[in-house]
Design a protein around this nucleic acid. Structure first.
Length: 171
DNA sequence: GCCAACGTTGGC
DNA sequence: GCCAACGTTGGC
């Protein structure tokens, strides 16, 4: 098995948009909540690699696998649905909010440190494509999310893996 | 620039 | 709730 890195995956995209997996803990923000709100700014990312993906790589129209992490019950952990990037990166306003847990004293309006894209609901799968099922699919063995200790909350996905999941989950 | 210590993520 | 694996921080 090859071991694709995130950069390999990003640069392998040749279509008009890229494909991503974005994690959210459902008790904090679930696919149902996204459906209700229609779209949401993806605030609170405080990891540089994930931020750089949003700032530099994500474009309007990019397709997103919405992943429930630390789900309850645990076997519900997995890809819960589909979303799409609706607006490219803008400064994350929580970095300026002293009352927020995401406040960052180093950030100024002139020099924001953190950015977020707007994520738009597309569809909730009838059934979550669980982590156990992802791991069991030979086809998906290169996905980052199934690698041990993979904590990155925004991950690139290959078009091939994206289409495979779409086919399985939307028929 | 190294790397130990610390804090966080997230599956189990 | 545990803890392995990871990212970040800060002393040097």
């Amino acid at each position: 098995m090859k071991n694709l890195t995130a950069l390999d995956i990003i640069s392998s995209s040749n279509g008009p948009h890229k494909f991503w997996l974005m994690k959210s803990e459902p008790h904090v923000f679930s696919i149902d909540q996204l459906k209700k709100e229609g779209s949401t700014p993806w605030e609170g990312v405080r990891n540089y690699q994930a931020r750089n993906f949003m700032m530099n790589e994500m474009k309007v129209g990019d397709q997103v696998l919405f992943y429930h992490s630390s789900a309850e019950p645990p076997y519900e952990t997995g890809i819960a649905g589909l979303a799409e990037i609706a607006e490219s990166a803008t400064p994350d306003k929580l970095q300026f909010d002293k009352k927020s847990e995401y406040y960052d004293a180093k950030a100024t309006k002139e020099k924001p440190q953190w950015f977020c894209v707007r994520v738009q609901f597309k569809e909730k799968f009838k059934k979550t494509f669980t982590l156990a099922e992802l791991k069991a699919e030979k086809e998906l063995s290169e996905m980052l999310v199934i690698r041990q200790g993979m904590r990155l909350s925004i991950q690139p996905v290959t078009e091939k893996d994206f289409q495979f999941i779409l086919k399985k989950c939307t028929k």
